[in-house]
């Protein structure tokens, strides 16, 4: 696996605030990588380090085989970036900005530009401040997707897009992946992450807390089961992968590791099952667990 982005032990402090506290992140070439974390976790700081706008205090960062700080200018020819909050010059039209960005990167595809403007339903003649937030976002998205950058760095790019445009955005990301490009997608929209991302990294307080494919991450979580049984429990609590068994009369509640479900259901069946509900882990639960662990620990 070749790596488009590889970051290890990255530290960055702003005064007393530790924005990055030993962050690790690996993005393979050609994958769509979801970059998740609560507000203030350090996602944008990481991206700004990768873009050579901030200099890390310590740690190693490699981007497309180069140093994001020292080789910033040459690397940027191969990168397209869409910030979460796009600000435009008030007296330049959207079309002018798209073409300026294109020329700075050494040209953009005219047909692809025209096609994208049509798909995103963008009016390129409007000027900076007259665009809504979603439309400013579209200007940056058209410029990014019309380039032939190898790596797309997208920082919450769909905040402000309507559901139809969000759909167009998803198509564009998938097309980019099919064309062999790498995408780092920071997002809060979990359905978007689920639909697009091959792998995700979850960070919290400037550290990576989880990385892997969605299936792998799901695997790490537990299914909650509640059942009404006919007979007594048959050694269920001793089974590997079973947690938090609470039994009251014929009612039993428990948590089971998702990959041990088979054994758990067998054991329940031997006791005779009157009713059973099993709740699989939702993606939300998965993330919420990571996002809130800290508060839970603090309590």
């Amino acid at each position: 696996m070749t790596k488009a982005i590889s970051v290890a032990g990255l530290h960055k402090a702003f005064g007393r605030t530790r924005a990055l506290d030993g962050l690790d992140l690996t993005v393979a070439t050609g994958e769509v990588h979801g970059f998740l974390g609560p507000n203030g976790a350090g996602k944008s700081t990481t991206i700004r380090v990768l873009l050579g706008l901030l200099r890390a205090d310590s740690g190693a960062a490699e981007l497309l085989g180069g140093d994001p700080w020292a080789d910033a200018v040459t690397l940027h020819r191969r990168i397209a970036y869409v910030p979460g909050d796009v600000t435009l010059w008030r007296n330049l039209s959207g079309g002018e900005v798209i073409d300026l960005y294109g020329r700075l990167r050494g040209g953009l595809h005219r047909e692809r530009r025209a096609e994208l403007i049509e798909r995103f339903e963008l009016d390129p003649t409007k000027k900076g401040r007259t665009y809504s937030k979603g439309n400013r976002q579209k200007v940056a998205l058209v410029a990014a997707f019309a380039s032939d950058a190898e790596l797309l760095i997208l920082d919450e790019p769909t905040s402000g897009l309507d559901p139809l445009m969000e759909e167009v955005f998803r198509d564009c990301v998938l097309e980019a992946r099919d064309a062999g490009r790498t995408v780092l997608l920071s997002s809060h929209i979990l359905s978007e992450v689920e639909a697009l991302c091959d792998r995700v990294s979850i960070i919290r307080k400037g550290r990576n807390v989880e990385s892997g494919t969605l299936a792998e991450l799901r695997h790490l979580t537990r299914t909650s089961i509640s059942a009404e049984l006919v007979g007594p429990l048959n050694g269920l609590a001793q089974l590997p992968g079973v947690h938090d068994v609470q039994s009251q009369g014929s009612q039993v509640r428990l948590q089971a590791d998702t990959d041990k479900l088979d054994a758990v259901l067998r054991s329940l069946a031997t006791s005779g099952v009157r009713s059973l509900t099993a709740t699989p882990p939702t993606l939300e639960e998965l993330f919420l667990r990571h996002y809130t662990t800290d508060e839970a620990n603090a309590r």
Binding site: S93, T125, K127
Partner: peptide, 27 residues
């Protein structure tokens, strides 16, 4: 709110700004 009496007119759909120097001059 946010609007004025000297309203912004639409601009060109395509731009000719060639680089950051031209952009600085334009601004």
């Amino acid at each position: 709110v946010g609007m004025s009496f000297l309203a912004a007119r639409p601009g060109p759909a395509e731009g000719r700004l060639g680089g950051v120097g031209a952009l600085a001059w334009r601004l």
